[in-house]
């Protein structure tokens, strides 16, 4: 059997926004959606070694070796110029991790951690790695009290969820829109699988949190909000629902011309959802 490798764009040792408590977060590279509102667009695609970024690097940290773009983290000063010039929303600075590499990171930071969260990109595009990693954590005496979470866009099919859920403690799931045409416009994909995933995860007791991105004039219509309330109520009105407010931070391209979601409007919608019976609506702590 081949040992699975993960293509990782970033590791955080401290995150308080990716599940319960402090979490080590692996951001995996590559996504099966292409949302214009993405605030990490450089995590969307895998590098195709076109080399456009190499001459742009001011410190010479990028070179081409045998047709492949190679990144030297010791020289890199994290200016992110390479991400700005990438024509396909990829990232030349990714690192390959095997399961033991991640276990070593967890050992090193264990006293600070409540758990690990795999995010992205879209985490589940590297499902084999997640299963191998979570299985290793669950069977490691020193690590098994860490909770294992996935942050997902919900596009994974039902059968695939079944393979990872036995070793997963919880999933944070994004719903981008209820109107399917709107969903396609916002993500390039249909929402059928996403809504099915939410129901499946809820039924399995693994839906830790639903997330909904409010975009003025797009996903904040009264119809969308009503469907959101109906959907959550049909699961359980106490399901944690995190409202995210669209901001320009990190965004590239067309969506920069879209208006941002302001705090009073977010609060108003939160209040509407609460009066519709939802008891666990969380609003952003910060608007940047």
């Amino acid at each position: 059997m081949n040992l699975p490798l993960a293509t990782v764009s970033k590791v955080l040792k401290f995150s308080c926004v990716d599940g319960p408590g402090n979490r080590l977060v692996l951001f995996l590279q590559g996504c099966n959606f292409a949302c214009p509102t993405c605030h990490n667009p450089h995590t969307m695609k895998l590098c195709n070694d076109c080399g456009d970024c190499v001459p742009e690097c001011p410190t010479g940290a990028l070179t081409i070796v045998q047709g492949k773009v190679v990144h030297d983290p010791n020289i890199c000063d994290q200016c992110d110029r390479c991400l700005d010039v990438c024509p396909i929303n990829a990232n030349p600075k990714v690192t390959q991790y095997n399961v033991d590499d991640v276990l070593a990171l967890l050992y090193q930071n264990k006293p600070f951690l409540n758990g690990i969260t795999i995010s992205g990109g879209e985490a589940t595009t590297q499902l084999k790695f997640i299963i191998a990693l979570f299985t290793a954590i669950k069977t490691d005496e020193k690590l098994k009290d860490l909770t294992c979470f996935i942050d997902s866009n919900g596009y994974l099919p039902e059968a695939a969820w079944k393979t990872v859920l036995p070793v997963t403690d919880g999933v944070m799931l994004d719903i981008k829109a209820f109107d399917n045409t709107l969903h396609s416009l916002l993500t390039t994909r249909s929402n059928q699988r996403v809504l099915a995933s939410a129901k499946q995860l809820f039924a399995a007791g693994k839906l830790h949190e639903l997330r909904y991105l409010l975009i003025p004039g797009r996903t904040d219509s009264s119809q969308e909000i009503k469907e959101l309330a109906d959907f959550v109520r049909a699961l359980d009105s106490a399901t944690p629902l995190r409202l995210n407010a669209f901001q320009h931070h990190g965004v590239k391209g067309e969506a920069l011309t879209w208006p941002t979601m302001k705090e009073p409007d977010t609060e108003r919608i939160a209040a509407e959802l609460r009066s519709a019976g939802l008891t666990n609506v969380v609003v952003p702590a910060v608007y940047i």
Binding site: P20, G21, V286
Partner: peptide, 20 residues
């Protein structure tokens, strides 16, 4: 210095103190 996102997640602060 912690950013304000910690507001929604005091458990993260508790773990940080315990870790420290």
């Amino acid at each position: 210095t912690l950013d304000e996102t910690i507001e929604n997640n005091p458990a993260a602060l508790e773990q940080l103190v315990k870790g420290a």
